[in-house]
Nucleic acid binder design. Sequence first.
RNA 1: GCGGGCGUCGCCAAGCGGUUAAGGCAGCGGCUUGUGGUGCCGCCAUCCGGGGGUUCGAAUCCCCUCGCUCGCCCCA
Length: 450
Amino acid sequence: MDKLQSLRGMVDLLPEHTPLWQWLEARARLHFRRAGVSEIRTPLLEVTELFARGIGEATDVVGKEMYSFLDRGERSCTLRPEGTASVVRAALQHGLLSQGPQRLWYGGPMFRYERPQAGRQRQFHQIGLEMLGFADARSDVEAIAIAWDLLADLGVQGLALELNSLGTSADRANYRQQLVDFLQVHRELLDADGQDRLERNPLRILDSKHPATQALLVEAPSLLNCLAPESRERFEQVQAGLTALQIPFQLNPRLVRGLDYYSHTAFEITSDQLGAQATVCGGGRYDGLVQQLGGPATAAIGWALGMERLVLLLAQGDAAANDLAAAVPDLYVVNRGAAAELAALRLARELRAAGLVVELDASGAAFKKQFQRADRSGARWAAVLGDSELERGLVRLKPLRQQRPGAAAGGEGADGEAVDGGGLGGKGLGGEAELRLDDLVALLARVGSA
RNA sequence: GCGGGCGUCGCCAAGCGGUUAAGGCAGCGGCUUGUGGUGCCGCCAUCCGGGGGUUCGAAUCCCCUCGCUCGCCCCA
């Protein structure tokens, strides 16, 4: 069938899921705010060259995963595959760095043309932190701590922080030579992919999952041993900082990040609950990137967090899920009759202006039908407005959530708390009541704001 | 780009060569011509992702194709 459907790897977020995302985003915003980090929003579309130069031509992301196309002006454009390059570009373009170090965060969709699988989509969402103009090892610790604390606050369990240092570019060149020398000798043990990388990008062989390669790497020289004394000392400071903050970590000398701009500290926060895509958050230092994009030499560190993966983790534990129901109406307006329907429209508007969550039945259906819908909406009250009420200037108020014998079982949807008379009961209105229209608005306004 | 699994109504799901393609949820209508959640009754796939083939006969077997999904690669 040729029904219209979303593009492969492009996923709809349906209403039942958006509350969790909103909650997540709100928590993240709060953490950034407390840490003095400001939000920056950059375009989804950039010139292709930004990513080619920023991320590295040899990387998979640039080499085979970008959504690139020519626009009507024949410019090569690319849907951003990550956030860092854009943030740095924006900071340079607007002279942010001349105003001192920048603590920035961003969030939103990223695009990578890959085969979708668990925890991987073509359009996916990241929240990221970029600290531009920060060189001290303490900034590494702070950046990691912000991520760690956010994740902990969200209630994500079973996370592990893996840490490595890639040193300076000189350190890496040094190590690269040692690694190549070692692997050359055992070349035939590498898979085709590994042999290919031996020339192009030998460091990437380190995180290969190929069993024979893994076995071979046990004997391989360690990157950490190639660090210059200053790099080593810097790395130790980072570790000391994390220890002081009681953030547990494991050293992983095989941890190399896939984007070229990383140096010194590299880290990943992983979960064993995610299947193949274990990394929830990844980042590191990128002291060379700003300069590479045409700016002044500027030390920087940042990370990005994969929202879909986070949601996957949150959905497993029920910690967050409970208090995230969508807004339930305070009041459902049942109405029927030409004049009454108009009055109901007005009533709903006034009640909303007074701060109440009001659902108006606009179907014109029979009262029975409307009450069924009122009940399913989860509203606490039904306001009934028909022509006879209207004639007398009244509205009938009916409690919907009162427990009635035999009504509890078999409930669907948002049952649970069987609300009693609520605030209105306390005001001497047990059960059903008739009220003057104006009084209802006034009364509910008071209850709503209480 | 390469492997594995799967594709029946909006959702869940029976069926496994001959059925009018079960059932449940949701939806709609009615019993109750202005009053809710229960109950009862009725309606809701000429069609089984699409195309071809085998057969007297296919949702059920074969081929191709598309889509979904998991994994490799890579990354958040």
